[in-house]
Amino acid sequence: MSTESKPISNEWQAFWLAVGFLTRIPMLVRIDYSQKLMNQCSVYFPLVGLLLGALYAGLFTLLSLAWSPLVCVLLVLCFHLFITGAFHEDGLADSVDALGGGYTVEKRLEIMKDSRIGTYGTVALVMALGLKAALLVNAQSIWLTLLVAPAISRLTPLLLMAYLPYVTDPDKSKSKPVAEGFSRKRLLISCLFTALIALMFSLWLPVLWLAAVTAIITVAMVWGWYLKQQLGGYTGDTLGASVVFCELVLLLGL
């Protein structure tokens, strides 16, 4: 393989690795897996979010031919939970259980690794999904909100990875390869891509740009500060929770 085509091949594999990491969508290319490639794939998280958003918006448009907006939104949320394996929602539940039930850093990390869900996590999931459905139904443009929200919200965990230390047991965490060696140069690329999405779709939804910037910065700063105080850094679960929080703040702004 030529030196020119190899970087292109690596980026193509990194994109599909990001798809496989964040969703249940089958990877359609052969992946030469390495920790370096896993580090590189994080730049594509917002792009994977846009891919998911396109699926959600398309499904909503199709379903709206037969059912009310509320029914369509709930069905889209069911599809979202299936196609992502409730990846971020699982992180939200584990994070809230740990931060609500642990009194030391060690105990919080122990609770976070427990596969069982507690009262705090259950309440957080119910409220987050219910609020998300209500906000989507009341959005100015439901299909457009479904399209852009997943992309914008997936920039937040990249900011946390760039500016906070990784604190959980690296040998037992799925996010270890992403966390190690995170490139801020690639973070800049993700920021520019997300900004382009917000600017482009602000032509149809003028408040989008302001809502996007507010959601990303607010969640990154507030959630990041809280994690620094409670854990000393971030874990894979708290990154998932940041996506859910950013989506909710974005939807509130819209």
Rank of each mutant, 00 (worst) to 15 (best):
T3A: 14
A215L: 05
I117M: 03
C191D: 12
G85R: 06
H80W: 14
P165V: 13
A211E: 00
A151N: 12
L254R: 06
L192H: 12
W209P: 06
I117D: 03
L99A: 10
M112P: 04
D169P: 04
A134R: 11
S141F: 08
A133W: 00
I142D: 02
N39A: 15
L125R: 05
P69M: 01
S175C: 04
Y226P: 02
L239P: 07
V48A: 01
E4N: 10
P177A: 01
L203I: 15
D169I: 07
A66V: 13
D114S: 04
E11T: 08
L77W: 07
R24N: 06
K113C: 08
Y33T: 10
L160D: 09
G224W: 03
A18T: 03
L160C: 08
P165T: 09
L77E: 10
L47H: 10
F21G: 00
M127N: 12
V178H: 09
Y120Q: 09
A211D: 05
I111P: 00
S190G: 14
G253V: 10
L248Y: 08
C246G: 11
E180W: 09
L196N: 11
L55T: 14
E110A: 04
E11F: 09
W223G: 00
L164M: 12
G233M: 05
V76T: 06
E247S: 10
L159W: 15
W225C: 04
A18R: 02
H80Q: 13
S68I: 03
K36C: 01
T168K: 15
M221S: 13
L146T: 10
S175N: 07
D114L: 03
L252H: 11
A179D: 07
A14V: 02
L239C: 01
A98Q: 07
A57N: 06
L158F: 10
T104Q: 07
G49T: 07
D94H: 13
V178M: 13
L227C: 14
L210P: 11
D114F: 00
S115N: 12
S153F: 09
F45S: 00
L155T: 12
T23C: 07
V105A: 12
A124M: 05
E106K: 15
V207D: 13
V29M: 05
R116L: 01
K113G: 11
Y44E: 06
L92I: 14
L22C: 07
V29F: 05
C72A: 04
V207T: 14
L146H: 03
A198W: 05
A54H: 05
G102F: 12
W67S: 05
S190A: 15
R108G: 09
F45I: 04
T104R: 09
A134C: 09
V222Q: 02
E110Q: 10
G101I: 07
G121Y: 00
M38I: 03
V123Y: 02
A124L: 02
